[in-house]
Nucleic acid binder design. Structure first.
Lengths: 191, 191
DNA sequence: ATATAAATAGACACGGGTGTCGATTTTTAA
DNA sequence: TTAAAAATCGACACCCGTGTCTATTTATAT
């Protein structure tokens, strides 16, 4: 409500994001968040009443802003392979630092998660990539691939790598070989 | 040591496997395992002293037995696409029931997991699939694909799907589209 | 400046998991 | 069968996170 409350709320969300990204969902307690934010129990509880509530708020926030906005670039007439290159690079970056992403926390949370929220998240992501590929095909830049199939290969193979790269050390060439495969499927001219 | 102890130990491991597969790693307590096995605290603690120890023992056990033995079939001269078909089908089955696999638990456990154990697990899996693809190429059944690249696509895209299918409901056609993509990459004759 | 409301601190009792240890039961072997 | 050893039981004290509640501090508005 007030300015101060707003700032504290933002602090809690930011701090919790880091905690969830680093340690996953289950391990994080209200006490951890108290300690990390330097708030007392009372201070924290007046904003949120459980790690679950905090986590859901974070997820909703993520759902709002969309860091990779293909649509805008497509409308501006940017070449499909330029957009794709950039998007794949972003994916690689993300994979290289899995401890900054919520994927573990989301996965852990899956037991109690609101499936609708996740469904929507997933669908809008699939649609975005499908639109990009369709754009590339229509522009004659990409091969006429099975769009749905390739979207899934893209999303899930990166997802799988992101997961494993948290468990075992991975060299960038693993990420690159995924990217390379995708590009081979799409790009008519050699890369 | 004795027969009874051996049996109890096996019971603990089996029961815990189910618990970990269903609920992940972090949530499971020694008390849960006591309840599920109908052992008292003393009984359980005389075998294992933490969920972590139990989980590691389970992982080691999994590392021993290899349910998909390609090598044997390859030596028997079975056609590569027959082996591949069967293997992909197994993957699809596995994905359809993610609550039976330890993937969530392993992922959660990743903070404290023994990276060497996981590395070995992963490498032997990659090697196995690479050997199969090489076998198919040498036999003239498969296209001359980039083996390492395709192995990663196979392993990680299935992994990613397995993960998401725990979070959101997935129809079998998602699994099939992955399989379909792989077969297209490999099989010279239409499927 | 001061009254009012908002935000925070920190103590409290509670619940639940932990690890231990002596008593008890079951297994093993002579 | 019976004594020794092995395995299990279950109570106990302990620790830690929870959620609440009141006193106190800080912000807001007149």
């Amino acid at each position: 409500m007030t300015a101060k409350k707003e700032r504290t709320r933002a602090l809690i969300l930011e701090t919790s994001y880091t905690l969830f990204a680093q340690h996953g969902f289950s391990k994080i307690t209200m006490k951890d968040i108290c300690d990390a934010t330097n708030l007392s129990r009372g201070g924290l509880y007046s904003h949120f009443s459980s790690p679950q509530e905090i986590f859901e708020t974070i997820l909703e926030g993520l759902n709002q802003k969309d860091e990779m906005n293909f649509y805008q670039e497509m409308e501006s007439g940017v070449a499909a392979n330029v957009i794709m290159d950039r998007a794949l690079l972003l994916m690689e970056r993300e994979m290289a630092s899995p401890q900054d992403s919520l994927s573990l926390a989301i996965y852990e949370y899956s037991g109690s998660v609101d499936a609708n929220l996740m469904c929507h998240f997933n669908q809008s992501s699939e649609q975005k990539w499908a639109a990009l590929i369709r754009y590339g095909i229509e522009g004659g830049e990409f091969y006429k691939v099975d769009i749905e199939e390739l979207v899934r290969i893209i999303l899930y193979s990166y997802q799988g790598v992101r997961m494993w790269s948290r468990i075992i050390p991975m060299t960038p060439d693993v990420f690159r070989s995924i990217t390379s495969h995708i590009k081979k499927q799409l790009y008519r001219q050699k890369v």
